[in-house]
């Protein structure tokens, strides 16, 4: 079966790396995901951004078939993950949120098994490359319990990359990770993007989405509220805030600058007396502001 026979997610000549359509997932009475739809473009980094319990892991679990959707469908590279799981999964790399233990096996053995699961029995060249890339090569004879927290997380990423997947799913890759490793992981994701890998990452760190993602889907209480380019979200929903301190007045006044507005515009608009102004303080908008506006408006 070729990809084009599975028509969903196929537009003209490009096949969507990931297409999620009207996905709902209930756990008993809990509605973890409600009618979520989004589509990834080839080669982009897409962020699912939302607070804890928003339903991010549930969506990822449905993509990798660890959970069965209550309704809706998911296509990876044009293949329905329910109907054609093996074809869909062979091009996906998955980094789970929680560390996985492997008991008796060392890093090298774990990667060798993992390669085999994807049909690659002679994959030494690739696994060695990944071990070097993630700075695990010197630790390749250690068991998981002998690795530091950061190394464990890098091992999870190494496992997800043995088969050179076209789509990489990262579930909260930097949760509970120190600043240095976070920076390294961000660099690594940028490198993968440069290699043409499509990345879906979930995060509740706004800064992470801002740094890495081309587009962001804002999710809260199981619903995707908005899918937009990161820059658009920042431009549209954040204003620069301006704090003006007047002479002889103790309390400063706060104003907001809309996109394209200058401080001069503000002074004219608000008819402020320039001679009375003692100090002006401008702070730039962040994705955090956008997030607040969309989710808590």
């Amino acid at each position: 079966m070729t990809a084009s026979e599975n028509s969903a997610g196929v537009t003209k000549d490009t096949v969507s790396p990931l297409l999620v359509q009207n996905l709902s997932k209930n756990y008993g009475a809990i509605e973890a995901v409600r009618n979520a739809s989004f589509n990834l473009n080839k080669g982009e980094v897409f962020g699912l951004l939302g607070p804890n319990g928003a339903g991010k892991t549930s969506i990822i679990s449905c993509i990798v078939t660890l959970e069965k959707p209550t309704s809706g469908s998911i296509f990876v590279g044009g293949f329905d993950v329910q109907k054609n799981p093996r074809e869909a999964k062979r091009n996906v790399g998955f980094v789970p949120q929680e560390i996985i233990n492997h008991g008796y096996f060392n890093v090298e053995e774990i990667l060798s098994f993992q390669s085999g699961y994807f049909g690659l029995l002679h994959n030494r060249e690739r696994t060695d490359y990944i071990l070097h890339e993630l700075r695990l090569y010197e630790h390749r004879h250690k068991k998981v319990k002998q690795l530091s927290g950061g190394m464990k997380r890098r091992l999870l990423i190494a496992k997800a990359l043995v088969h050179s997947p076209q789509l990489l799913l990262l579930d909260e890759p930097t949760a509970g990770v120190d600043i240095e490793l976070r920076e390294q992981l961000w660099q690594f994701v940028k490198k993968l993007k440069a290699e043409g890998v499509t990345v879906l990452l979930t995060t509740h760190y706004l800064e992470e989405a801002e740094q890495l993602c081309d587009r962001v889907g804002l999710i809260d209480k199981g619903e995707i509220k908005m899918v937009e380019s990161t820059q658009f979200l920042i431009d549209k929903f954040t204003g620069r805030s301006v704090r003006v301190k007047f002479r002889n007045v103790v309390a400063p006044r706060d104003f907001e600058l809309r996109t394209g507005e200058t401080v001069g515009d503000l002074i004219n608009k608000e008819k402020l007396d320039v001679n009375q102004i003692e100090d002006i303080n401008i702070s730039e908008g962040t994705l955090e502001d956008a997030f607040r506006r969309v989710i808590y408006q």
């Binding site: 093996r86 062979r90 390669s115 085999g116 699961y117 994807f118 049909g119 690659l120 029995l121 002679h122 994959n123 060249e125 690739r126 696994t127 060695d128 490359y129 990944i130 043995v162 088969h163 050179s164 290699e195």
Partner: peptide
């Protein structure tokens, strides 16, 4: 250098 693994080499029958 990236450590190629050509997809055509993957044996999804015997490998796993």
């Amino acid at each position: 250098f990236r450590g190629s693994n050509v997809k055509g080499q993957a044996d999804l029958f015997l490998g796993p």
